[in-house]
Design a protein around this nucleic acid. Structure first.
Length: 288
DNA sequence: GGAAGACATTACGCGCTTGT
DNA sequence: ACAAGCGCGTAATGTCTTCC
């Protein structure tokens, strides 16, 4: 059974990456002659900002998500694809979807073949020290100065922005759920917002795949009121969330119209026979 | 016409400053 | 105290310009 995000995964990241790039590209080198993944809160010396790790962790976490989705995808005759392109909904080669669930085993997808879009926003969560004796975990994200993953406001805003970009590039994506996958909690400041994003239909969830982001059994937010954010605690729970996400076809819609206009639209739509065709007519009419 | 090189755009995550 | 947002270095692409 695949594992969610753990310290082991981060260990694996540094292990694999140290074969690709130098130690100096993965760790800060402090004035205390120690190599750190993040600057510890206790560290007071001169600091630098590492950029060389960003692309590596981005790629590693996206692959991690693809692996995690693999069994679920296979069981439904679907594929999990990294860097998917679909020009009609704003997923260009310059700005592809991190990961999608889809019907064809290729990078370029038709809208109707995309089942779900996942935006991956994960970083190194714990702090690590590289020593000649190997890698040592120094503590959780409360012990270092960096602010990882979805705890950063700009990461949240980037995720929201990209999702809205997809929603406004055309009506083609109206049926596709968008989920943000992270490996940290979110800040108090965003708890209401993620619920509003869910209710408004823009983003179908912010899910953290890190069950225990803090050491010493310190609790973190499990979920928000409306489940706009959810901390996923097991692989089974993850599968369950995916099931619920895909079980029923949903439609995103939005508009800014007068009550008069809306009333007319409802009146016309309600003349259709079945509930479904009423909905279809409604969705068709609010587009113009 | 096609290769090489220059330049532009986008994304990644994080330290830092600004603003409330 | 803490969220917002700027700007950084790097990598991967895409596009335009130059030269043979």
């Amino acid at each position: 059974m695949p594992e969610l995000w753990t310290k082991d995964k981060e260990f694996e990241f540094f292990e694999i990456s140290s074969n690709l790039v130098t130690i100096q590209q993965l760790f800060y080198y402090g004035e205390d002659f120690r190599y750190y993944a993040y600057w510890p809160k206790s560290y007071k010396g001169g600091k630098s900002t590492l950029q060389s790790r960003n692309a590596l962790i981005g790629n590693f976490t996206e692959k991690f998500v693809v692996d995690l989705l693999q069994d679920f995808a296979k069981s439904r005759n679907l594929y999990a694809i990294q860097g998917a392109i679909c020009d009609q909904i704003g997923l260009t080669s310059k700005s592809p979807a991190d990961v999608v669930l889809c019907r064809e085993n290729k990078t370029e997808q038709r809208i109707e073949d995309i089942i779900a879009i996942f935006e991956v926003k994960m970083s190194i969560v714990w702090n690590w020290e590289y020593t000649t004796n190997g890698l040592k975990c120094l503590g959780d994200f409360k012990t270092h100065q960096g602010n990882p993953g979805l705890l950063r406001s700009d990461s949240m805003l980037k995720a929201i922005g990209k999702s809205i970009n997809i929603r406004v590039s055309g009506y083609g994506a109206s049926h596709i759920p968008i989920v943000i996958l992270g490996n940290t909690p979110i800040t108090e400041y965003y708890t209401e917002k993620v619920d509003h994003l869910l209710i408004a239909g823009i983003i179908q969830g912010f899910w953290s795949l890190n069950t225990k982001p803090l050491d010493d059994n310190i609790e973190t937010l499990k979920q928000t009121d409306k489940k706009g954010f959810v901390r996923i605690d097991s692989y089974c729970e993850f599968l369950d969330m995916l099931d619920k996400l895909l079980i029923e076809k949903q439609n995103f819609f939005s508009a800014m119209k007068t009550k008069n206009q809306l009333g007319k639209i409802i009146e016309i739509a309600s003349q259709e026979r079945s509930l479904e065709s009423k909905a279809e007519k409604f969705l068709e009419l609010i587009k113009v």
